[in-house]
Simulated assay, not measured.
Amino acid sequence: MSLLLDKRELKKAARELTLAKLNDVLETLQSVLAERQSELDAINEIERFAREKGFTLEQLGYKQVQEVVASTPASVSSDDKKPVKPKFKTLNKDSQYFYVENGKLQLLRTHTMKKGLQERGIDVVPAAKVDKKFAKDIERLLADATEQAVTNYNQKVLVWNDWARVNGGELLEQR
């Protein structure tokens, strides 16, 4: 009986659709598609420009904004895909690289940034080869980076735990 009702409803809906309505729907979809394409082009241009200048998108806040949006509890539902289980990575002083820009020592955040800095004529060196006058800044930079890593890890743990509660996964501790 329900199959007959569904068939009748489909026929009724098909009669109501006219060529003009279908053209309106197609035009709307095409305008949305064009708008999305222009947004993608703008994003790609920003990413290319940032890479050329030696910046990472994380430094510009691009990836951090996406993480903050993804970490809101309202965005987590049982239909969401399984998030990546966060792993805390400690910063080892001996494996970090540094560079001097505008008279200040900076920590190299990602190795993809290294080539852009070198192209601009900025030397990237390991901690052992940092100039003596900047040696006192190493600990401060590592402490700041560790603090940021803990914050990012804790945000990811919140997302993971929300998913784990719904799906019966392992709950993680924040640091």
Score class of each variant (00 low, 15 high):
57 L>T: 09
27 E>M: 12
163 W>E: 02
130 V>P: 01
51 R>G: 04
152 N>G: 09
90 T>A: 10
175 R>T: 01
113 M>N: 09
82 K>D: 11
125 V>L: 08
15 R>Y: 01
77 S>M: 07
84 V>P: 10
146 T>S: 07
50 A>T: 01
69 V>W: 10
105 L>Q: 02
34 A>N: 15
70 A>E: 15
159 V>K: 03
114 K>T: 01
7 K>I: 03
76 V>L: 14
64 Q>V: 04
27 E>A: 11
105 L>S: 01
99 Y>R: 00
27 E>Q: 12
172 L>S: 03
68 V>H: 07
150 V>Q: 13
48 R>E: 07
65 V>E: 11
119 E>Y: 02
155 Q>F: 15
54 G>N: 02
34 A>D: 15
93 K>G: 00
18 T>L: 01
118 Q>A: 03
109 R>S: 12
31 S>G: 06
1 M>K: 10
31 S>K: 15
31 S>Q: 15
88 F>V: 08
28 T>A: 06
72 T>S: 12
31 S>M: 14
13 A>D: 06
82 K>T: 13
80 D>A: 11
133 K>G: 08
37 Q>C: 05
81 K>W: 12
26 L>V: 07
157 V>P: 02
34 A>S: 15
83 P>N: 10
72 T>P: 00
113 M>W: 00
155 Q>W: 14
100 V>L: 06
119 E>Q: 07
105 L>C: 04
64 Q>R: 12
80 D>V: 12
64 Q>C: 01
124 V>I: 08
156 K>S: 13
151 T>F: 13
41 D>K: 06
47 E>D: 05
126 P>G: 04
40 L>W: 07
145 A>E: 12
93 K>W: 01
66 Q>G: 08
84 V>R: 10
61 G>D: 08
80 D>G: 05
6 D>R: 06
31 S>N: 14
54 G>A: 03
132 K>G: 07
91 L>G: 03
96 Q>N: 00
